[in-house]
Simulated scan of single mutants.
Amino acid sequence: MENIFFSPEALPELQEFLRSRAFSQILILVDENTRRDCYPILKKALPEHHLLQIPSGEANKTLGTSETIWQFLTEKAFDRWGVVVNLGGGVIGDMGGFCAALYKRGITFVNVPTTLLAMVDASVGGKTGIDFLGFKNQLGVFQEPRAVFIHSLFLETLPARQIKSGYAEVIKHWLIADAAAFETQRLVGFLAADWQKLIPESVEVKSKIVKADPLEKGVRKILNFGHTVGHAVESYFLTQLGRELLHGEAIAVGLVCESYLSEQKGLLSQAELSRIETFMAMVYEKVKLKPEDIAGILPYLQQDKKNRNAVINCVLLEGIGKAVYDQPVTVAEVERSLQYYQIV
């Protein structure tokens, strides 16, 4: 995993990276949470730099916030030899990378993920982007960070809810590519998770898939397992004041629904579906879906980025540990999966 550094080497490697490359200017991008909890840990490893705080949360991953970042870079006269250090979770990494990739046709950026979700998923793979008109990651580009520095110490700053959110992506990696790990962890359980071991293993799963298909023309699509339904759920709940879900909470719904779709299409056995459902129920509190919620979620399926010619293309499981992509599903089938999720 070239240019991905794990603790305890992560912070010394970041320090060496910033000091040895003679960047003209350095911007540390934070939100109010990472400025308070994570920036003090990182600061001692940094040379002279600028600090920009933006508001946290998916609701702020917008063009408006992006304009704030571009305005700051412009006012500080950043040239193409500057660097942006994204210190935060998935929102900071997605948006900071997007802004760096577009500013003056692209300047260097690196990711220092501070959430489990960002460590195992968002910071690796080169997807950057922002939400637009209520649709998740509607605008974005593929642009790899120059390096990723993963320090598990930042996990100590997180509440359990945020850890569980990131864990959904770890589970996804097991379900699409590592049946043995899923069976092991199913017995071990969430509370006994060894992050020093699980994080590098999960990153390796994603890195291998991305390396085989950087621009998501084929096999990389399997990384979207749980996300066709999950992103629709997440986008809908962002419009429901006081009911917003974290990304991983919505993906957890998607993992169950798309496992159910896999079983319905004869790809996944009933026994495997049951093992997945039982494990998910042990980790996640069920999201309560009213009939009007399901009706509100369905329109978001039409904007899924895997769709082609108005056909909803889903990633399904051909058994635990093996995913297949470009599987057409209907809105009615997704509706039934959400209804199933509610009663299972």
Rank of each mutant, 00 (worst) to 15 (best):
Arg80Gln: 03
Val30Asp: 03
Glu9Asn: 05
Val283Tyr: 08
Glu13Ser: 05
Gly140Val: 04
Tyr325Ile: 00
Val253Ala: 11
Arg336Gly: 12
Glu201Leu: 06
Asn60Gln: 12
Leu298Ala: 01
His151Ala: 06
Val344Asn: 15
His50Lys: 00
Gly57Cys: 06
Thr184Asp: 08
Glu292Gln: 10
Gln143Lys: 15
Glu204Gln: 05
Pro12Arg: 10
Val287Trp: 14
Ile176Trp: 10
Gly266Lys: 10
Leu63Val: 13
Ala332Leu: 06
Gln185Trp: 07
Phe78His: 05
Met280Asn: 07
Val141Ile: 11
Leu27Ala: 04
Ile54Asn: 12
Thr68Glu: 14
Leu63Arg: 01
Ala179Met: 03
Phe98Lys: 07
Pro55Thr: 00
His50Glu: 03
Ile294Met: 02
Ile92Asp: 10
Leu11Asn: 11
Phe237Lys: 02
Leu51Gly: 05
Phe190Ala: 10
Glu201Ser: 13
Cys257Thr: 15
Cys257Gly: 01
Val148Ala: 05
Gln71Phe: 01
Pro299Ala: 07
Lys104Leu: 15
Glu67Lys: 12
Gln270His: 13
Phe149Gly: 14
Glu48His: 11
Ile92Ala: 03
Glu333Ala: 04
Ala212Val: 08
Ala77Trp: 04
Ala180Arg: 11
Asn3Asp: 13
Ser24Trp: 00
Gly321Trp: 00
Glu75Arg: 04
Gly134Ala: 05
Val233His: 04
Val229Lys: 03
Cys38Gly: 08
Asp94Gln: 06
Gly248Asn: 08
